[in-house]
């Protein structure tokens, strides 16, 4: 038995991404809407290289096998981009996470950054740290890192719950910029109130496209927009037909 609705949805999504990435290769314009958080992040990365401070990328506590793993993969993509730009700094970027598999992948990401820059001998496993396994132990471990490691910018990109307020408050007290996004809805409400630059809804998933991770990231962002409008259209049609059938019955 074949699940046709999922197959149709995925096929549409893949076709949109592939077609749009081919079109993107022929165009120099990205056509992305303004998300101030990413402009501030780019500025903060350049500033950290200049003043020799450190960027902290928090990838959260989700594992690779859970549905929240996608948010962690976005965190890894952003770590790679931030690392490419800021690895020449005196204090290279540091990553924290709350899951062993993501820690191994984050260490690989940072190690590859160093290898790309020909700085393999400077790499240390301490740059990808497991801060804690439970939500609050992760927050507590990350808070101490923000205070102790000369961090100038905190980028929270991954899966965080309400405990993220402890991390952002540590950023506030150490007078560092905090840019934060999560896939968790209560976590988003908390980050809206506590982070300097919150990333709401799907803005977290746009990180790769805004940090120049490649044309496929931009294409997938446009594909999301197309599919979102299709879903909105179907919801409106469903609601209207429901009202009409209710009135006529």
């Amino acid at each position: 038995m074949i699940n046709f609705d999922i197959l149709l949805f995925l096929t549409l999504f893949v076709v949109c991404i592939l077609v749009l990435s081919l079109l993107k290769n022929n165009s120099k314009e990205d056509n992305l809407r303004d998300i101030p958080a990413f402009y501030r992040l780019k500025g903060a990365i350049e500033l950290s290289v200049e003043d020799g401070s450190r960027i902290h990328v928090a990838i959260g506590r989700s594992g690779i096998t859970s549905p929240q793993g996608a948010a962690a993969m976005i965190g890894l993509s952003m770590l790679k981009r931030v690392g490419n730009i800021a690895s020449e700094s005196d204090e290279p970027p540091i990553a924290t996470m709350g899951d062993g598999t993501i820690m191994v992948l984050a260490q690989d990401t940072i190690r590859n950054n160093y290898a790309d820059l020909g700085l393999s001998s400077s790499y240390s496993n301490d740059l990808g740290r497991m801060a804690g396994i439970t939500p609050f132990s992760y927050a507590a471990g990350t808070m101490s890192l923000i205070f102790d490691e000369d961090v100038s910018t905190n980028l929270l990109a991954g899966s965080f719950g309400p405990e993220s307020a402890l991390i952002t408050s540590a950023g506030e007290r150490s007078q560092t910029l905090t840019i934060a996004g999560t896939d968790n809805i209560p976590g988003q409400a908390v980050l809206f109130a506590t982070a300097h630059e919150p990333l709401i809804g799907e803005e977290l998933y746009a990180g790769g496209a805004y940090l120049g991770a490649g044309p496929v990231h931009v294409a997938s962002l446009h594909a999301q927009d197309i599919l979102r409008w299709i879903i909105v259209g179907l919801l409106v049609v469903g609601a209207v037909s429901g009202i009409i059938s209710g009135l006529t019955s």
């Binding site: 995925l10 999504f13 991404i17 549905p67 996608a70 948010a71 993969m73 976005i74 896939d183 809805i185 809804g201 799907e202 977290l204 998933y205 746009a206 997938s220 962002l221 594909a223 999301q224 599919l227 979102r228 879903i231």
Partner: peptide
């Protein structure tokens, strides 16, 4: 939005 972002990733 989160669901679409997850599928795209």
């Amino acid at each position: 939005g989160v669901g679409l972002g997850t599928v795209a990733t």
